[in-house]
Design a protein around this nucleic acid. Sequence first.
DNA 1: TATAGTGTATATATAGATATACACAGTATA
DNA 2: TATACTGTGTATATCTATATATACACTATA
Lengths: 132, 132
Amino acid sequence: MKLPIRVSEESREPIYHQIETQVKSLIVGGQLPPGTPLPSIRVLSNDLQCSVITTRRAYQNLESNGFIKTVQGKGTFVKEIETIKMEETKQKVVIDAFVRAVEQAEQVGCSSEDIRRIFKEVMENKRNGGGL
Amino acid sequence: MKLPIRVSEESREPIYHQIETQVKSLIVGGQLPPGTPLPSIRVLSNDLQCSVITTRRAYQNLESNGFIKTVQGKGTFVKEIETIKMEETKQKVVIDAFVRAVEQAEQVGCSSEDIRRIFKEVMENKRNGGGL
DNA sequence: TATAGTGTATATATAGATATACACAGTATA
DNA sequence: TATACTGTGTATATCTATATATACACTATA
């Protein structure tokens, strides 16, 4: 299965961390149920045009945090996760993203009304084709 | 003048880049008018608890992008910027932040309604003390 | 001209990304 | 049942980017 994730070369966020957070999102969002085999580090590194070591590092961190389980020679699989932890992670991740966006808006001097207007625009544009 | 900026040690975004984007936001937002002297690299590095080289790098990048002008021995100053460029940068920066937030929400499986609800919550919490 | 403020340059350490060679698991087939 | 093969994860060495300390140079002014 091809993971719907996307890394940005331009972003200053490390690639391994972009992979990590996106895979985590797919897991806590329920798109990747427990037991699901993840793409091998090689297949994924090829998809994302990065090194095997980079995808491996992402998987290693996800394993440390209890989201996946990797077995040498066999592959990497989504672990069973407590419903509470999933819900908490999911909520937190989205709220954080919006807090960052609002803070960014305030730093360039947007009023609450400006912010609401821009949010609306983004939601509209999303519906009409996604292309910003 | 003490800049209202804040760097996160935990963030995977490089410190020099956090400084860079935040100072840029203050400039295009109009909080730092043309001619305003920025804090010296030493003062700023002390405020932010980072190295002088780090603040310097941020200033160098901002200078390359035409936002500030630094003069050896004297200091660093906000440049005159075209109104159009300012408005464009301002808009772009905020829209990008919201697009990222919405994409994050979608990746964990939020519906449009979920997203609107969370946005509302974040805006409410902001009013009631900011402390999330 | 001494001093305290500014920015600048050199060398060094840590983190992120890579290529390449290695080890384990499953499977086809001689 | 051997064994070759292809798939998986693992380890070592190397390079670039990020962050730092420290010494240097320019500007203003007491």
